[in-house]
């Protein structure tokens, strides 16, 4: 059947402003949106630029705005949309466009790096492995499913008003390390998350959870960080009062 694709185009070498191009594609209802983009590239316009790699929702490189919603082009099928086979494809919002559907993700990965997305533990590694408690594994498991596709951060309204805000994806990764007992930097991590650029930037708007193509409860995980910060604060305050009492 015939599908109409209206695609955002911008080539910095030629264009002063972006425009939309229209393409007609023969597609099956079960074809992925990515298949259609490939068809357009092969049959109509080989200059159409977009990112993709695995085509199976693992690499996280083809997050795009499809009919006004952020989706992975490889996870959505033609029949998933009730738009009479019309599709509007735009790049991820918020980020700067490099060319056509390709955006500059450097700010996204910088934020990710900022939360130190690796295990911090100065102890020498044991012979075999650092064992993890099963329940804790289950608790942080959702965060492990993140494929860093940037859908959440691109959709987050706070991210647009405060450019220093870590954003949902980075906070989700922070959640994973803060609650992992094998990591010994918990206090420093909590300290750096305790600000408007960290966990408190989140106003619980649920947009990240709504768009996440891996179904991760991002907002809830950020909520867990907030809870932990408050608990530690309480503990600190209680300890302070106790010390004061003793001195008096």
């Amino acid at each position: 059947m015939k599908c109409k694709f209206i695609i955002y185009r911008f080539d910095p070498a030629k264009d002063t402003a972006p425009h939309f191009d229209e393409y007609e594609v023969e597609a099956e209802p079960s074809d992925k949106i990515l298949d259609c983009l490939n068809k357009i590239r092969w049959e109509h316009d080989p200059t159409l630029a977009y990112r993709f790699s695995c085509a199976h929702g693992i690499c996280g490189s083809d997050a795009l705005m499809i009919n006004g919603r952020v989706e992975l082009a490889c996870q959505k099928l033609v029949m998933d949309f009730k738009t009479a086979n019309n599709f509007v494809i735009e790049p991820l919002p918020f980020f700067n466009v490099v060319k056509d559907l390709v955006v500059d993700l450097k700010p996204f990965f910088n934020k990710h790096r900022r939360i130190k997305p690796y295990l911090i533990n100065p102890d020498a590694p044991p012979d075999k492995e650092r064992l993890q408690d099963r329940q804790i594994q289950e608790f942080i498991e959702p965060a492990l499913r993140c494929i860093l596709c940037a859908s959440c951060t691109a959709s987050c309204p706070i991210n647009r008003v405060n450019e220093n805000y870590a954003g949902p994806a980075a906070l989700l990764r922070a959640f994973r390390y803060v609650f992992d007992p094998r990591d010994t930097a918990t206090d420093e991590r909590i300290e750096s998350l305790n600000s408007e650029d960290g966990a408190w930037g989140c106003r619980t708007m649920w947009w990240c959870t709504d768009v996440c193509p891996k179904g991760i409860p991002v907002t809830k995980c950020i909520g867990q960080i907030k809870r932990l910060i408050k608990e530690k604060d309480k503990l600190k305050n209680a300890l302070g009062e106790y010390m004061e009492d003793k001195n008096v």
Binding site: D11, R41, P46, K99
Partner: peptide, 14 residues
């Protein structure tokens, strides 16, 4: 190679 640009040249990659 139709695309002669040097910015994210998908065509050249192909």
């Amino acid at each position: 190679v139709v695309d002669k640009g040097n910015c994210f040249n998908r065509n050249l990659l192909d």
